[in-house]
């Protein structure tokens, strides 16, 4: 800025009458205008930001936010001159036409594909725990133990035992043994252990029992021989008992 004296000298040369007018402002302003100016401007700015119609509050274009982050990222990436700049220079030296092509993908894409992309996770199957394979000798040992149990069981619970018991009882002198027991003891045993006598059978049962011989006689000899064949074991035992 030129010093005030220089300006006055210059003005005196080109328009001397202006020096007489002076440079004070004839306009008046309200008191404290400049002190409040900044505050009033800020207030107006804030008011401008407030929407006048409630219908327009917070309206944004469709799908604005869903793509916003990616758009920003893209801009950040594009504004990063490091690799992109190097690529542009590289292309310029080998194939400058590549720098003039829009890199936006021209392919069609279903609407909102990225917004709705959902990964179909496979359903995890329950883990099957593989049992440890037994060694051969353990398998054979288990089979041997099982076979042993089967043999012992069949021996213990087979008819052989019944045969042995039957023989044992056949050889017992029951009459002799009973003679040694007093009548009072026998009576008290019968009282304590309720046994069924013919008297206690119902009339119907008794009738059936009485007709037993008739029923056997009415049976065919084929049926009787079939019954005896099927129960040959008992027949033999009865025969043996009879011989004794």
């Amino acid at each position: 800025m030129k010093p005030q004296n220089t300006i006055l000298e210059e003005l005196n040369e080109i328009a001397p009458t202006l020096i007489k007018v002076g440079n004070s402002m004839p306009f008046t302003i309200q008191q404290g205008y400049f002190e409040q100016l900044a505050e009033s401007i800020l207030e107006k700015t804030t008011l401008e930001l407030i929407p006048r119609s409630e219908n327009k509050v917070f309206q944004v274009p469709d799908q604005y936010f869903s793509g916003l982050a990616n758009k920003i990222l893209q801009k950040v990436k594009e504004s990063n001159p490091d690799e992109l700049g190097a690529l542009i220079l590289e292309n310029e030296s080998i194939a400058p036409i590549l720098n003039r092509i829009n890199k936006e993908m021209p392919f069609a894409l279903p609407d909102y594909y990225f917004d709705q992309l959902a990964i179909q996770m496979p359903v995890e199957k329950t883990k099957v725990v593989q049992l440890k394979k037994m060694s051969t000798w353990v398998t054979y040992a288990a089979a041997a133990v099982f076979a042993g149990i089967m043999v012992t069981g069949s021996f213990l619970f087979s008819d052989k035992k019944q045969e042995q018991d039957f023989e044992k009882y056949q050889n017992m002198d029951v009459s002799g043994a009973l003679d040694k027991v007093s009548d009072s003891e026998l009576n008290s045993y019968i009282d304590e252990n309720h046994t069924v006598s013919l008297d206690e059978l119902s009339e119907n049962d008794r009738a059936n029992f009485d007709n037993f011989d008739d029923k056997i006689q009415s049976m065919s000899s084929e049926n009787i021989s079939q019954y005896l064949n099927e129960n040959g074991f008992l027949e033999n035992k009865l025969e043996n008992a009879g011989e004794k």
Binding site: R100, I101, N102, E104, P106, F107, A108
Partner: peptide, 15 residues
């Protein structure tokens, strides 16, 4: 076959 394909467009020529 792309619905946006345009044989005159440089982007498609590039593809």
């Amino acid at each position: 076959a792309d619905e946006h394909f345009d044989s005159n467009q440089l982007e498609w020529k590039l593809q």
